[in-house]
Amino acid sequence: MKNMIIHKIADLGAVDITELLTESKEEGFRNIHRLVNEYKEGINTFQREDEALFECRVGHRVIGICGLNRDPYADGSIGRIRRLYVLKEFRRHGAGRRLVDAVIHMASSHYTKIVLKTDNPKAAKFYEKLGFKEKKDDELVTHEPEL
């Protein structure tokens, strides 16, 4: 889908992600709910210079979101992919790949490594298609890109 645009979000409070929140809850995912709550409470606002939150839009509609944080479980040289979600109707159209690419691009100028954790088998397959390798020996990290 060529009319998808990736933007860095400066203020999540100024972005309407109601559709993402509603659909993710219906699917049984809690990551967007956590994103909103942690942002409101100031726990995770993606505001450090080495962090970012990206949205994917089609027109005025936010169809996906993904963030980059400094990994809270490691030293400052590792970044962590956080809160990826794409609306069902836009999956398999490149939105997730473009969001992850934006995160990796930003991470490459701040971190030596990027990691993530997922307990969703479909998400795991998605990341593996993007070249991430599964890690089985770490309870805090399930995937990292192959070097």
Rank of each mutant, 00 (worst) to 15 (best):
G96N: 11
N44Y: 02
D16M: 05
I78Y: 10
V86M: 06
Y39H: 02
E26Y: 13
G59V: 03
T142H: 07
R82I: 02
I78R: 14
R48D: 08
K129C: 02
G94P: 06
G96V: 09
G76L: 12
E41H: 03
P145K: 05
L84A: 08
M106G: 03
M1P: 10
K113L: 14
R30W: 06
G28I: 06
G64D: 08
P121Q: 02
E38Q: 12
A74F: 15
F90P: 10
I9S: 02
L12C: 02
F29L: 12
G67Q: 03
K125L: 09
I9C: 02
G64K: 09
E19H: 13
F90V: 10
M106W: 07
F126Y: 03
V62M: 07
T142R: 04
L12F: 00
P145F: 03
T45K: 06
N31E: 12
F90D: 14
G67P: 05
G64V: 08
G13N: 11
D75V: 14
H105W: 01
E23R: 14
D16S: 07
L116M: 13
A14F: 05
D50C: 05
A74W: 14
I63W: 02
E51A: 01
L84D: 03
I43Q: 04
Y85R: 10
K2L: 04
E41N: 04
N69I: 15
T118W: 07
E41F: 00
V141L: 06
G42F: 00
F90H: 15
L147E: 15
R48G: 02
G42N: 01
K25D: 11
M106K: 14
I6R: 00
N3V: 06
D138K: 14
G79M: 10
Y39F: 04
M1R: 13
S109T: 12
F29I: 05
N31L: 10
E89Y: 11
E128T: 07
F29S: 08
I65M: 12
A123F: 02
H105Q: 12
Y73N: 15
K125C: 03
G131S: 07
T18M: 14
Y73R: 13
E41P: 00
K117M: 15
F90M: 13
F29W: 15
K125T: 08
N3Q: 13
L35E: 11
L87P: 12
